[in-house]
Amino acid sequence: MICDSPAGIESGATLAMRHADVAIVVTNPEVSSVRDSDRIIGLLDSKTVKAEKGERMEKHLLLTRYEPARAERGDMLKVDDVLEILSIPLLGIVPESMDVLRASNLGSPVTLADGASAPARAYFEAARRLKGDALPITVPGEKRGFFGKIFGRKAA
């Protein structure tokens, strides 16, 4: 069962995580988002039933709204920066895309609205990795936008 939590670190998030077995921390490459994610990771390790029993909470990082071109220009935190700061394994990278808002406007997840779009593919791949498939993580190409070069990346 997958339980989506409200964004941020308010009570909604702490309620949603309380009985979790595995957690996916979704973050954007910006300061406020990474900061909240760090606090959520702290809460996952201390305020969940699993943590209170002394067990280790399995955590994954899903980086969304990533713009490789801006990261390459030095105007956005890079994947490695975020991974170094949060130090939890990466589940996937979802590129910034207009398809997401378009799908949201239609009231449909991007994976159903346009399954061939870059973000949809990223979500499908992340889901497969969560299920245990050893799929290399693809970083959207750094120079020619999202649909440009794609190179393999070792799953953390």
Binding site: E30, V31, V34, R35, D38, R39, G42, A71, R73, G74, D75, M76, L77, K78, D81, I85
Partner: peptide, 19 residues
Amino acid sequence: PESAPAARERLQVLLAHER
């Protein structure tokens, strides 16, 4: 100038303090 290094540094200071 590049803004990402500044973001990185801000986060490192902020999180060191918060942790």
